[in-house]
Design a protein around this nucleic acid. Structure first.
Lengths: 255, 255
DNA sequence: CCAGAAAACATGTATATACATAATAATTGC
DNA sequence: GCAATTATTATGTATATACATGTTTTCTGG
């Protein structure tokens, strides 16, 4: 698991400046994928072509591709070439979200309800949540995810309209903001926070719990190259939910 | 983050059997490190020597070493050689534990108190917790971690005495079982589970909370090559604690 | 004896090359 | 016309080689 998040433009450029060729190729390919310029299923240029493009040998490109494949960003097929993999970064960290899938895996009927959307200038609290340095327009979305008709999870989300202006005119009454954002603004870095809190009156009412019931709160902030994208807080009734993460130290073959 | 845990001996051997030379070297070096045969600080053989030993070129060994370094298992210094890194796998997943360090980072005085140890034959519940297939002797340890004299975290641990027989005679009144185990039985795979629960009467009393207060419960199971090592449940007063995980999708430079 | 230069050393990165392997495309034989 | 064979293509793994880059050790000269 990585720990370093590079957000500062200056630093990013520093890294690019005196990077090795290997790093440079890696960065450029990765950003094509992660930005969505090369969507899932897209075939990357062949190794020999990339080698020609960068003026290096195939071995150098090959090593980069091997690394990308190991990281799960691309899939390689002999004779055919290398392809961007389907499941975007999402879901790799802590294997949750999208919630629809989570509910489906429990073999329950999924439904979704929009509670409210509010557009406003970011206040102090919004800026803290989104990691915004300056004020700017944000969109707040509150919605519920339901399983078999019962409350499953409360979602409270802030979207940075400076990075995702289209969200202003999006219709979240039928599609949840998570999937919507994933299509339009894939993220390159994320930070998760998990805590246990007692449900406040309003949350308890929405989730049909007694006040003070223990809830699992998962918060996620995401960034792309243009800045903070969104901050989301999922509140789950604690007793019914778990976050699971398997782990092997290494180096050894993933997937 | 990896998701595949290899515990089954048969499968492990399958992998070793028709592995490439690269994989074989990787596995063997890794097991030396992870088993503790090469403790932190130990200098690995030089690349040229390993190349000679495996009858391959330095490049092949070099690639393996690069991978180990990227995974954080070794640290490489020019001219000096490559060394096993200090912080064993632990702490890489979700950056918590050891708790002593966690408390120290809050600039609070750390202390530790043993509550009870019990040796018994594993019952159904123990076997579920430890992922044991057959019954066998286990050691249960209950203890508390304190920060500035206040309860910080309750630890409830099961140790598989078949894999760690020495634990039977260990003295946990001054050293916590976590650090003790880490020295003697480093793990190769782990599984984490996080949930929010309301404190039961006993837990509440120990942590000096009102019953039903939301608590963050982190459970971890660990295995080494001989089987399940330990299952531990940490209960933190929820409001004061968070699990944080940063993330970048790739392939890009860690550390 | 010790500071500073030079040599030796181990790793870091990249190249060119070779052959293996798997999948597709083209060719052949009937 | 179609199955079976062969050729082509792209990746997979490994080798030998070269030079760069920091460290440490050794060798100087004062």
């Amino acid at each position: 698991m990585n720990r370093i998040i590079i957000r500062d433009a200056g630093e990013t450029m520093d890294i690019a400046r005196d990077a090795t060729l290997h790093q440079r190729i890696l960065n450029e390919l990765e950003s094509q994928i992660v930005s969505g310029a090369w969507p899932p299923g897209h075939r990357l240029p062949f190794e020999v072509d990339l080698a020609k493009q960068y003026g290096c040998s195939r071995m150098t490109v090959n090593k980069v591709m091997t690394q990308l494949a190991k990281a799960g960003l691309i899939e390689r097929r002999k004779k055919s070439g290398s392809f961007v993999t389907q499941p975007q970064a999402q879901s790799a960290v802590l294997e949750i979200h999208d919630i629809k899938t989570e509910v489906a895996s429990l073999k329950l009927a999924y439904s979704y309800a929009l509670l409210a959307t509010t557009e406003r200038e970011a206040d102090i609290e919004d800026r803290r949540r989104l990691d915004l340095e300056k004020p700017g327009p944000v969109l707040e979305v509150r919605c519920m995810h339901l399983a078999a008709g019962d409350p499953f999870c409360l979602e409270e989300r802030l979207i940075n309209l400076e990075v995702v202006p289209d969200a202003r005119h999006a219709d979240f009454s039928n599609v949840a903001p998570g999937p919507w954002l994933l299509e339009r603004a894939p993220w390159t870095a994320a930070q998760h926070q998990i805590q246990a809190v007692g449900a406040d009156r309003e949350t308890a009412k929405l989730l049909k719990l007694k006040p003070e019931t223990a809830c699992l709160v998962i918060e996620r902030r995401t960034w792309n190259t243009f800045g903070p994208v969104t901050h989301v807080r999922f509140t789950y009734p604690g007793t019914r939910h778990r976050v699971v993460a398997d782990f092997q130290p290494s180096s050894s073959q993933p997937r």
